[in-house]
Design a protein around this nucleic acid. Sequence first.
DNA 1: TTCCTTGCAAACGTTTTGCATCGGT
DNA 2: ACCGATGCAAAACGTTTGCAAGGAA
Lengths: 142, 142
Amino acid sequence: MKNDSTLKEAGLKVTHPRVKILELFQSNPHSHLSADDIHNSLIKKDENIGLATIYRVLTQLEEVGLIQKNHFDDNSSSYEIKKQHHDHLICNVCGKIIEFTDDDLEELQEKISKRHNFVLDTHVMTLFGTCTNGECNSNKKD
Amino acid sequence: MKNDSTLKEAGLKVTHPRVKILELFQSNPHSHLSADDIHNSLIKKDENIGLATIYRVLTQLEEVGLIQKNHFDDNSSSYEIKKQHHDHLICNVCGKIIEFTDDDLEELQEKISKRHNFVLDTHVMTLFGTCTNGECNSNKKD
DNA sequence: TTCCTTGCAAACGTTTTGCATCGGT
DNA sequence: ACCGATGCAAAACGTTTGCAAGGAA
């Protein structure tokens, strides 16, 4: 219900696929989902929404700034619900993705850009490593 | 000729496609080339090397650490000859790619990783902006 | 009723693979 | 001679598009 107004405010018609996809992101705010992940999740919920529609909706949701597209690897893109700006730490072993922010980092990026006569627009920073928490055994992805 | 030993030392047979591809990178050390870029460059030089071979060679050269794969956008991957570690600044207007290193940045990444109980392996940091040098008019890519 | 949206299937561009042939060592 | 490397064509993969039917305003 809340999503109805979110979509309207964004200038998008309230349609079943859009609502369902938005709900999926909101029910798991830290998830990073590919189009295929979303497709499968929806099928499990007996929501038969075509993959093409999912791609179209994801593009639109990104255009209006409700979600954010990432390409952590070259196989496929993933999307997450748009929150404050952040970067990512990805565990090479268990696939866990941690979101973080760091003010020093933001500052440093500005400094580097200026040094090279660039006006900074956006940036991507992804750290790959191994998480040393107990959880890093299973192969679950977030 | 020099590439013959480079390849041998890496444990790869010295074959025509491998030598030619390696030469291409060395003749332009700051280039960031896709498989297709390489294919076209070689065709211009009357080197008819199959695209499949180029992909195979690129994968092997990356495996032995002679080149590095980047995925700046989600259309295709690009490769560059492996140099000291560096990050990238990309101009959204003219496509120019600047390579840079920053010790503070490296330090900061270690700090962030530790804070989240990660053992850092690698990272990707790409800044997107607009370059304010005079050159940023043409549409040439590096 | 009017467009926008959807589903399906077909098209797309990039990358990978199967297979027969070729070529370093 | 051996086994890996190559070329070609076909397949695979994620993603996009054309089109006719359906649905929100």
